[in-house]
Amino acid sequence: MLLEIKGLRKTFDDGTRALQGVDLSVKLGEFVVILGSSGSGKTTLLRSINGLVNPEAGEVKFFDQVISSTTLPDLRKKTGMVFQDFNLVNNLSSLNNVLTGLLDSSNSLMSMLYLFSREQKMQALKCLEMVGLLDKAYSRVDKLSGGQKQRVGIARAIIKNPTLLLADEPVASLDPMISGSIMTLLKNIGHKIGLTIICNLHQVDLALKYSDRIVGLSGGRIVLDAPTKDLDEEYIRKIYQGHGSGLFFNEDDI
């Protein structure tokens, strides 16, 4: 097992119980979608994995190692993250944004001067090629379209050859057509470099189309966990009935 989460609980300072006992195991190479409406705890779950959120109970095991403050740096080296709002540095070129993914392994003095080795730059260019943006390597990212920005975000997340990619609603700020192409890209890259992907989504159609497995979250609890091939819209709709709304079943709902 690549990742084993047991009994994860998180209550925020204001009393919001975002996670109320979550168990989840992820195999190497899986593309898992965490499906849930707004406020169901997807972000909190994902951020608990790489320690951006500190759960008060439960444990996260990565390669059979319990994640603690001492093992966290190792996990972070092996995970990449893709964000809903891209979180790119706007004034920098796509290439420099991708290179920021290598900062933890760079000579700090040289990188302060934006100097990177030839291999590092080749690696960044290869990642940009993989996401189809080689010709935009030297464009400032604020000049790129939303879909292109997310591609840069993905290139930045994969440059250090992670084992695990965490994607928090990577297509929520994009239109349906571009969303499809970004999801395809994630899936293809996952296949190509043998990446395990955990991706938060609130659109059922995208989850059904691209994932290997769907984990449904509602009110901080897992309400569904099954291989995608065994699932359909009707079934998911039934499960979510009574669990509140906000799930998008197809593009007409949006």
Binding site: Y114, L115, K121, M122, L125, K126, L134
Partner: peptide, 13 residues
């Protein structure tokens, strides 16, 4: 392919 990627290398400054 390596040469192709190399053709996109530019000095940082």
């Amino acid at each position: 392919h390596r040469e192709y990627i190399e053709s996109y290398l530019r000095p940082q400054w």
